[in-house]
Amino acid sequence: MSYYDIDAILTEAERVPATFNHTIPLLGYLDNSPSLKAGTTVPLPLWLAEMLALASAGPSQQHSQESTSFTSLTLPSSLSTSVSQALKADPRAVALRDQSAHFYALGVRMLDLFEEPELGDVLRRTFVTRAGDVVMHARKAGSGTDDALGVGAQGEEFLRGLEEWERQLFRRAHDGAKGRREWMDGVKN
């Protein structure tokens, strides 16, 4: 992953819910209150939330014995149980882009932070199942038979729901098919 990788930067800007373990004065504007109370959940960008969750901040008020971090993280709504249940039922039916434009990248980052082997399984199965469809549409698109995209209304709906990794895959598959088609058209000369 490069420092200037725009997708990595945008992934780190995704919001994840972080619950504060300490009461923090002067940060209340995050929650529209005079001071940020312990136990408040605020959506923070991943790069900030991760730092706060990993850094140690001394003993907390709630559990005065052990030293805790500033915040504790939970899975973002795009990776919640309901989404993973829907993906388990039918990976094609979910518009991943509505959940997060960097769904898989975010999922991989969260898997690094959380011990969730089942979520990893769901992500992998979703990715390969959808990849099959992405490639099929990429091969058909632009061959110019029935309609403009050549994928039909349902296919268009599906393609609109692709997130970034899948869009990249679509582009690569389409480039391959296009190269082959152009060669076939030019073979007569």
Binding site: F127, L169, R172, D175, G176, G179
Partner: peptide
């Protein structure tokens, strides 16, 4: 033709 998408997957 398939190299791009195979590697991608």
């Amino acid at each position: 033709e398939g190299r791009g998408f195979i590697l991608g997957v």
